[in-house]
Simulated scan of single mutants.
Amino acid sequence: MQINPPGKFSNAFLLVSAFVIVSLILWNTNSFFRKFKEEERHKMEIWATAQSELLRSSENQELGSLHLKVLQRNTTTPMILVNADGSVKINNMPKVSPEDSTLIQKKIRDFQAENSPIQIDYQQEHLATLYYGNSEVLNKLKYYPIALLLIIFLFGAVIFFFFKTNKVSEQNKLWAGMAKETAHQIGTPLTSLLGWNELLKNEAVNPRITAEIEKDIGRLQTITERFSQIGSMPKLEPRDIVAETKTAFEYLQARSSKLVTFTFRTKVVSAEVMLNESLYHWTIENLVKNGIDAMKGKGEVSIEILKGSQTINILVCDTGHGIPRKQFQEIFSPGFTTKKRGWGLGLSLVKRIVEEYHQGKIKVLSSGKEGTVMQLSFKTLS
């Protein structure tokens, strides 16, 4: 089944059209550069003709006014005229001295690489050789195609990141929609379970059974509440993050294997942070469960709370196999997982809860063979 094919077709059409337009501009600029170079060559040939008239003229007054104008009007093209007797004349090169033979020879080689020299002859007699370079305008135009190629590259990069961001945004909407739909679907049987549990209480069933059922129903209600808040901005309230972290941590400790050691360390008595209690507990549970999975059900999971100047840092540590450094950012991407049966949504949801909903930060503080440390940072209210 195709999803939004018109949108994909229009995006592809715009991308191809943009590249075609830029390519046409590049081709046209290159064509203009070649024509402009040919025109400059023609202009220099006319100048060389006027110069030959000057060289073979015995007296300057015999030179026509047209030839003088041609020689005087060329003020943009740098050139070096080497006469048959070896003397050198320089035009439009204010930074080059006629006495600096080394620099003049270097310039002659540069000019030869740019343009073929023009031989000035008269009646099979060699009068001079004209070496000329590109004018300032032509030099600027020469680098214009390079600038266009850079523009094409940057344009392509912008389009790539736009499509990538758009794709991630669509994925996030899909996960959020699935979460809300899951919460909606759980709601109906959950209501029925509440009713059935009340009937069991009236049937003189062992109170311990109905009490345990109530705990499970309460857990399902918490899960439903969490899923229903994904995709919309949850309500935040001032909460003691130390107490909330300890509550979530102890809840998991009571329900985990005895092979896992739980350690809670803090020198911070309390710290108020704007929190959504349900989503924050979900965050701690996800990180702790990931740590337990990384240790393959055996090892130590610990939480340490540290106070910064205006922040509170929650360090979730495990003694698992660690995460490669190149995956430090990748693990938060939707769909990324190292588990054979994982969906790759846990850490993606954790990042969204921490950074988008609570304006906090989450990162892999360190990871290696000795284990992994995940750091959560939140701004405190005081």
Rank of each mutant, 00 (worst) to 15 (best):
L259F: 09
I152D: 05
K140D: 15
T210C: 01
T261K: 02
L174M: 12
E203V: 15
T247Q: 10
L194E: 14
I152S: 05
R255T: 06
I241Q: 07
I146L: 01
E136M: 08
T191N: 09
Q229T: 08
L148S: 10
R208G: 10
Q171C: 11
R239Y: 10
I159H: 04
E181M: 13
P145W: 04
T245S: 14
D216Y: 06
L174I: 06
I146S: 01
P189M: 07
I213H: 00
Q229V: 03
G195W: 06
L154W: 01
Q171W: 12
Q171S: 12
Y143N: 10
D240S: 04
L199Q: 11
L138A: 03
F162N: 06
E250G: 01
N166V: 11
G156C: 08
P189W: 10
A254G: 11
F153K: 09
I151R: 04
L236M: 11
T247W: 02
P207H: 10
V269E: 13
E136I: 13
G231K: 00
S270H: 09
P189N: 12
I209N: 03
I241N: 09
K235G: 09
N139C: 09
G177D: 05
L154R: 01
F153C: 04
L149K: 03
A183D: 05
F262H: 02
T188S: 05
G156T: 03
E198R: 14
Q185S: 04
S232M: 11
L194I: 14
V260M: 07
N197M: 12
R255S: 05
F161S: 10
T165Q: 05
I186N: 00
L148I: 07
G195T: 13
K180W: 02
K167F: 00
V269D: 13
T224M: 14
Y144D: 06
R265C: 02
T261P: 00
I209K: 12
E214N: 15
K173Q: 07
F153H: 05
I217A: 07
A179D: 03
A179F: 09
I230F: 07
L193I: 15
V205P: 00
S257T: 04
